[in-house]
Design a protein around this nucleic acid. Structure first.
Lengths: 155, 155
DNA sequence: CCTTATAGTTCAACTATAGAACTATTCTAG
DNA sequence: CTAGAATAGTTCTATAGTTGAACTATAAGG
């Protein structure tokens, strides 16, 4: 890719990314029930798909410090949506699991969120969708390999 | 697009979107100088490219309430990066402009951010980049037309 | 005029976040 | 085996962003 093409795409990416990020987040916020924030939902969704995860794993996945996760987890435990389960094999570790209510709520909201995203992307034809998602996943891969949020910088 | 293809893409979009959003945000955060947050940078960048904007316009663009914008603006004024300029033609309106320091800082950071995004997307060849950005912009268009954050819901 | 709408601010309450200090474990090297 | 380092998680303080309601000031329109 030559330089001017790259610059053009960067500029357009910034613009589109901003719009999508802000708008989608607003739609998600409106979709949430009274008692749950978007971040809290993303947390229970993560736990639902990654059974017996831990605070440290969540901190890595969400690219935030562990104390942020403690705060979110505490709120979710208070709401009765998740439980802290000490791990028998390593007594420093606390495994996180959904309660049945958390399970039910997460499933319901995941469906609603999928509908919402579906409404956005059903406009594209299958080939366009396939090409788009493949590049988008490549982008995610690039970011997974770059040192985002790693505590041990290379310097 | 048939149903199973759509469902497959939705699932993959959710996953990739989460990764990209979180990782990119962490990279942006690390890039920021001590005295500025990502949201504050996005605000001065918006003002730089939309001269004499207002709180209401920012609230629309960022999909948040006006009181959030007031808070951010106040912090940026305190840091000497932007100025509140009363509009002569309508005395309810306050126009926002960058100070020369805000201008300089925003420009510097925009360049750094473009480099960072460039590092992520230079992996793609020109054709893939072109196709991706076109679909991505279509998605942004869909979201601009949907009622995200609108106060006057259709119901 | 008087009412209604609009632009922006203030305030209280809450969530998310960072970072440092801390406790409790586990690992590791001598 | 034990002392020190590393790891998992929490607590605490401070700050930023957010909402929503109440408020001020101005403008527009009957």
């Amino acid at each position: 890719m030559d330089k001017s093409t790259l610059i053009n795409i960067i500029r357009r990416y910034e613009q589109a990314h901003f719009t999508i990020e802000r708008r989608l987040n607003a739609l998600f916020r409106d979709m949430m029930p009274e008692e749950l924030t978007v971040d809290q939902f993303l947390t229970i969704r993560y736990i639902r798909h990654n059974a017996r995860t831990t605070s440290s794993e969540l901190a890595d996945a969400f690219c935030v410090g562990k104390s942020s996760i403690t705060a979110i987890i505490t709120r979710l435990v208070d709401k009765g949506l998740i439980a802290r389960v000490p791990a028998p094999e390593d007594r420093r570790v606390i495994c996180l699991t959904l309660t049945s209510e958390g399970e039910r709520l997460s499933e319901t909201l995941e469906e609603k969120m999928q509908e919402l995203i579906g409404d956005c992307i059903r406009h594209f034809d299958a080939e366009e969708g396939r090409q788009f998602i493949e590049t988008y996943e490549k982008l995610a891969q690039v970011l997974l390999q770059s040192p985002a949020g790693e505590e041990n910088g290379s310097s």
